[in-house]
Structures are given as structure tokens and as C-alpha cells.
Amino acid sequence: MTIRIGLTGSIGMGKSTIAAMFRRLGVPVFDSDAEVHALQGPGGALVGAIERLFPGTTGPNGVDRAALGRAVLGDRAALRRLERLIHPAVRRRRALFLRRHAARPMVVLDIPLLFERTGWRQVDSILVVSAPAWMQRRRVLARPGMTGGRLARIRALQVRDSVKRARADAVIDTARPKSASFAIIRRMVTCMRGG
């Protein structure tokens, strides 16, 4: 039976870095964000439906993420309409991924909103990636187009880091050197593989 590790963490905590470490060790990773990008990118399966829901948010390169963000951030009803479109599509892709890797000893499901939705019910173990709030803020504000106000709106939609940490089976503190995080991940993978 394949062990499903749910990988999560709030924005700017270093989840992508940890996911890359699992890949480096040969563990298949389902990246929910990457799937959303593919569904919304040029020729993506959801581009037409998103344009119908939020006119003017798409173009030749697919969904204009900044325009879509302006249309839904701070508007819970609009965000729910978007989620009702995106989440089922991502779940279908995740099911395909799990079938494709059914013979593997473990997989990682990188799900940013694991606790905010019901993703935690579909995994065997939860790994939370965390860092101090000041570090999270510094990382996120270094991203192009990010502002303090936008970060505050995103954080308001996410379960608090302290709650995620309390519900986790394991926590990776990404304030530590990457080599320390990699050593922890390597031990975890070795243990789960029975090595």
C-alpha cells in the first residue's frame, strides 16, 4: 500500500523547497499549485470557464493571475465560485497521479490548503513546513507584485501556522539551513521505505 504524505504550509514557508527534496530522493510529488497553473495556462482546460465566470481575466497566455486575484481576493462569494470550478479538476488530476504511482511505497501530495479543505482526510501522514512569521513575510514580499495588503488577505484565508503545526505528524522548520531539512527528509524517506 502506498503511503500518502500530505505536505502543506502557509504561503512563504518553503514548501516548494521541501517538495523538491522529496523529488530529489525519488519520491513522486503531486503539486496542486502546478496543476492549477496547467489548468489555467495557455490552452488550459479551465481558461474558458474562468473567463465566463470572471470576464476580462484571461488572454492569450491563459488566466491573468493578477487580474483573477483582484476579482476574487476579498470577495468570499467570488472565491467560492472559483474554487467550485478548480477543486474538482485538481481532484481528478490527483486521482490519476495516485493510480499512476499505486505501486510506489510512498507519494507526496503537496496541498497548500490541506487543512482549509478536506485534503487532510485523504492522507496517511501530515508534514507541515513552517518558519518564523518575520521570515515568511520577508520571503513573500520579495515576490514580484506582492504587497503587505495582499499578503494579509492571503493569510486571512489560511489556517494559522500554529494550528497547522499542532495538527501535523511532523514539522520541518525551514528557518534552519537547507542541509538540515534535507537530512530530515532523507531519514523520513529511508524509514518509510523500510530501509
Rank of each mutant, 00 (worst) to 15 (best):
M1V: 01
M1S: 08
T2H: 12
T2V: 07
T2L: 15
I5L: 13
T8A: 13
G9S: 04
G12T: 08
M13A: 08
M13N: 09
M13S: 11
G14I: 13
G14K: 15
S16F: 03
S16K: 15
S16R: 15
I18E: 10
R23K: 14
L25R: 14
L25W: 14
G26T: 14
G26A: 12
P28S: 13
V29P: 12
V29D: 12
E35V: 11
V36H: 00
H37I: 08
L39N: 00
Q40F: 05
G41R: 04
P42E: 03
G44E: 01
G44H: 02
G44V: 01
V47K: 13
V47W: 01
F54V: 02
T58F: 03
N61R: 14
G62K: 01
A67D: 01
A67Y: 04
G69K: 01
A71S: 06
R76N: 04
A77T: 07
A77K: 15
A78S: 11
L79R: 13
R80T: 06
R81Q: 03
E83D: 09
I86H: 06
H87K: 13
R91L: 03
R92G: 01
R92L: 08
R93C: 05
R99A: 14
R100G: 04
R100I: 00
A102D: 08
A103I: 04
P105H: 10
V107K: 09
V108W: 00
L109R: 06
D110E: 12
R117T: 06
T118H: 15
G119M: 04
G119N: 13
G119R: 14
Q122L: 07
D124G: 10
V129W: 02
S130V: 03
A131H: 04
A133R: 15
R139P: 10
V140F: 11
L141Q: 08
A142C: 03
R143G: 05
G145S: 06
T147W: 11
G148Y: 09
R150S: 03
L151F: 10
A152S: 05
R155E: 02
A156E: 09
A156T: 01
Q158S: 00
V159G: 01
V163L: 02
R165Y: 03
V171F: 10
V171L: 07
A175Q: 13
R176F: 04
K178G: 06
K178E: 06
K178F: 07
S179R: 15
S181C: 11
A183S: 11
I184K: 15
I184G: 12
I185E: 07
R186L: 11
R186G: 06
C191P: 08
R193M: 05
R193V: 02
G194V: 05
